[in-house]
């Protein structure tokens, strides 16, 4: 059963001098106990997508079209009060900059208790403290963290606090926005495996935003490749990473250095993200695609559904025969 259904979601930012289309017509369905990685380079709209689902975009400048259905509820039709009830119980998040995720002048324990009580007001003081400490222990933090202030913790510890915080009400869906990006590789690995452990215990469904393909490879079942507000390729990690069909995905994978790989295999994708305030007629990736032909500039490719729910938006895939991608 799908827990989250995103239908034709478009987000535009209306600022003083321009209109930026940060998310363009995205549809995505998240099954229960899925773990979906969303990858893409900086500025491709990953956080905007997450913030749109969370309804945390600044109302004054962000226009949202489309539907987001969480567990049967149409989020965009909910009142503020209904959204507040959904938050943290059904939908929790861990943000990128955990160091600043909590107020610097309140103790960790106070803040966690305060947040817990938003949705569970009847708990006694003693029970609440026990609950918070057990949450801290669940993410391998000592109980003394309860009485500490955020600046007294290391980046990795704050990340764990954020994870403990996000899991306190057993949310149906957890969004992690670059939750491990700022950490060193060892801590990142530890936290990823802890998340996977907890996931089994708590039946979590997870969306993981990252620009790191290796995080997707090690911690996600499915992956969506995002570029300039569009999803270009979607499918099981084992399909997409082994047999990437979209030229952009291929480029992303080639830009990861391997231990054995010869130097010539390491290269990025030439060029930069297109200006999101200028509408594009054809394929959004055409300006940087080495396979681009005339049709790519004129017609936007439709999504082709291949076997195993593998979806690709590229003229080369589907109707036309795909060029040999493994050119070396």
């Amino acid at each position: 059963m799908s827990i989250l259904e995103i239908e034709n979601l478009t987000v535009t930012f209306h600022t003083k001098d321009k209109i930026t289309r940060a998310v363009h017509n995205i549809s995505l369905s998240v099954e229960e106990q899925d773990s979906i990685g969303i990858v893409g380079e900086s500025g491709s709209g990953k956080s905007t997508l997450a913030m749109a689902i969370l309804q945390l975009l600044p109302k004054r400048i962000a226009r949202i079209e489309g539907e987001v259905i969480l567990d049967g509820k149409h989020l965009f039709q909910c009142t503020d009060e209904q959204i507040r009830k959904i938050r943290w119980r059904d939908l929790a998040v861990v943000f990128q900059k955990s160091m600043n995720a909590l107020s610097p002048v309140h103790k960790i324990g106070t803040q966690m208790s305060d947040i817990y009580r938003i949705h569970e007001s009847k708990i006694s003081k003693k029970k609440l403290k026990e609950k918070i400490i057990s949450l801290l222990e669940m993410v391998n933090l000592p109980s003394r963290v309860y009485d500490l202030y955020p600046h007294e913790l290391s980046g990795g510890m704050m990340q764990r606090v954020s994870i403990a915080l996000s899991l306190m009400h057993n949310p149906k869906l957890l969004i992690l926005d670059e939750a491990t990006t700022a950490l060193d590789v060892v801590t990142q690995g530890q936290i990823l495996s802890e998340i996977k452990e907890l996931e089994k215990e708590l039946n979590l469904t997870r969306i993981m935003i990252t620009h790191d393909m290796s995080v997707v490879a090690s911690a996600c079942k499915k992956v969506a490749v995002m570029y300039a507000g569009n999803i270009l390729e979607f499918g099981y990690v084992k399909d997409v990473l082994v047999n990437p069909l979209h030229p952009y995905t291929q480029g992303l994978l080639k830009s990861i250095p391997t231990f054995k790989g010869e130097k010539k295999n390491i290269r990025g994708i030439a060029g930069a993200l297109p200006d999101l305030s200028v509408p594009v007629q054809g394929c959004i990736f055409a300006s940087r695609c080495e396979f681009a032909t005339d049709i790519c500039y004129q017609v936007k490719p439709t999504e082709e559904l291949l076997s195993g729910n593998h979806r690709v938006a590229c003229h080369l895939v589907g109707g036309m025969e795909h060029a040999n991608v493994n050119h070396s």
Partner: peptide, 8 residues
């Protein structure tokens, strides 16, 4: 933003 996300 965190506190808003929690429904406070």
């Amino acid at each position: 933003t965190t506190l808003r996300a929690t429904g406070m």
